[in-house]
Design a binder for these strands. Structure first.
Lengths: 324, 324
DNA sequence: AATCATATTTGTCATAGACAAACAATTTTA
DNA sequence: TAAAATTGTTTGTCTATGACAAATATGATT
């Protein structure tokens, strides 16, 4: 009951010849199937052809446009304004447009003019596909600056800069991936060299992110800084379900639960989840939140400390130590 | 045009009280929205309630069942046989059923009886929420066994065992997360201690996974083994879009592109994507694929080398070296 | 200039039907 | 008898259109 024809007797569905089926486009662009169909209905774009059984087939060119559109939406533009523009117009918009709202990470604002020269060099290493040089530059900077300033004043703004460059199309996806990988490696090495600390001198901190929150770099930066302050860190990585965060806090007898946010979630969801989590946590467990999520600071939750900038961690630890 | 009412006047949408909306269930279970709806129509399961506007709300219990069902489907069972069974029956099926198809990772079969004692100890450390002990046990084993056997004969089977234990409800999510985090740290440290290698003695390998493929541990295991063999590894982390893999291969002048798979994708999708990728890659760039994806070995693609087990990597490298 | 109330935009969900690929169980052929 | 071809059933995904609520923009009012 096996060994019939291989599962690809027919034409590969995702092949570039005629076009890509809707599922492939969803993968490539990150735009949901429903969204793609409703754009077609409302804005008359994209305009896929159909295969023999009536299913949509998107041209490679239009998929490319969709990717650009998706980036523009991340920059704050609205679909009605950009869906359907041609490739040239989209590129023009991308280059002229503001470098995304992720500026929260950086102390120093990154203008096209006044970029930190070290950051400039590192950005260049990324664009030159030189992982070794990038790594070397980072290690060098870490030794020169010391870990805390390295994280706060170099890694954080650099990450912002890379994100912006990517959003503007100046970096390809794989360049951003490589950057993430190298930074991850550097930070993890720093953390590993800190952890063997016999006598805990600070709170035991449980670190993680909410479901769907995939940004692991913020988490690593926080872990490095906290470990440096003498905290005992237990990281669960990204995307821990709400209930499990609470369970883990109890199981590990954590003094603090620290959550890192980016702006993937809607404000309402964040608020609701935090309330829920606060309710599930033991009362004497502190809750620290931070990251690129405006609602954290606009409507702070009672029973949670919002840290808008990485430099705010050290005072929080000091405060905790003082209270215990 | 900001600063109206705080964004949480209404009921928390993603909270565990009444139930989860369909998008959340898709995330949690990996089953598509369409599939969930059609199962309800055909098999009468699941049976979500509806919120005020008619949208489905799935109970946490049923989501749990769906997770088990999903796991059983991966084991080769068919929906008609398992969709709708209650929790107990599902668990029974899981335990009696072959220890998941991820057995490809393990050389030694993990029966409930004959578990490697070291693995047993480590599993216990995970269940006891003892990250330090787990870490220590792993480091110890690594030093004793040497890196390659450590990865092949300990980490891989242990990962399988954790996955199975989790699928059977013997581990909580956060315990599995912690395990992943610790292993990641250990493997990355090993890799970091290998990388400073001045003269490359093997191929330059570009490592990554396909979109939606989040399993990063397999990737790290491969990276460790390849680095040990003298390869120059450039890892892009997980989830690189197809086109970007090809671009990256060219940009980095990679000799080999290595992809790690789990069984999240359907066979047809995998086949199609691999063909596409093979077509986009330069002809003299080798393509190595491996992981828990049956179709890789059942219908191997011309122009790609399928590595069913981690121990198959070393011969591949040797073969490459011989050919150059 | 800030706050409110209304209007528009936009993503996601619903329903129901259809179809082709995957699978199981035949029958036919070597 | 075993392999190959044929049939029937199962199953995931796609289509089409409509609807609604959250997010955003616009205008009115203090």
């Amino acid at each position: 009951m096996n060994s019939q024809t291989p599962p690809m007797a027919s034409i590969p569905p995702a092949s570039g010849d005629v076009g890509l089926p809707i599922a492939a486009v969803e993968r490539e662009t990150g735009l949901g199937k429903d969204t793609l169909r409703v754009w077609e209905r409302r804005y008359g774009f994209p305009t896929p052809t159909r295969d023999s059984s009536g299913d949509r087939l998107y041209s490679v060119a239009q998929v490319q446009q969709l990717k650009l559109i998706s980036r523009l939406l991340d920059s704050g533009l609205r679909p009605g304004k950009v869906v359907g523009l041609d490739h040239a117009d989209l590129l023009a918009l991308l280059t002229q447009h503001a470098p995304s709202p992720s500026a929260y990470l950086s102390t120093t604002k990154i203008d096209s003019a006044g970029v930190d020269p070290v950051i400039g060099e590192l950005l260049h290493a990324i664009g030159a596909h030189d992982p070794r040089g990038l790594r070397h530059g980072l290690s060098h900077a870490q030794l020169r600056m010391g870990l805390a300033p390295f994280v706060t004043d170099l890694v954080a703004p650099l990450t912002t800069a890379v994100g912006d460059a990517w959003a503007q199309g100046r970096f390809e996806v794989f360049e951003e991936h490589l950057y993430t990988e190298v930074i991850t490696s550097v930070l993890r090495q720093a953390i590993a060299s800190l952890t063997p600390q016999p006598v805990p001198q600070g709170p035991k901190v449980l670190l993680t992110t909410m479901p769907q929150e995939q940004h692991s770099l913020g988490l690593l930066m926080v872990e490095a800084l906290l470990a440096l302050e003498g905290c005992t860190c237990v990281s669960l990585g990204t995307q821990t379900p709400l209930t499990d965060i609470a369970h883990a806090a109890v199981a590990h007898r954590a003094d603090v639960v620290a959550l890192s946010f980016s702006n993937v979630h809607k404000a309402a969801v964040v608020q609701a989840c935090l309330r829920e989590l606060r309710a599930q946590l033991p009362e004497d467990t502190a809750l620290w939140v931070g990251g690129a999520c405006a609602t954290l600071y606009q409507w702070p939750l009672a029973g949670a400390s919002a840290v808008q900038h990485l430099s705010g961690l050290q005072p929080l630890v000091a405060q905790w130590r003082h209270a215990h």
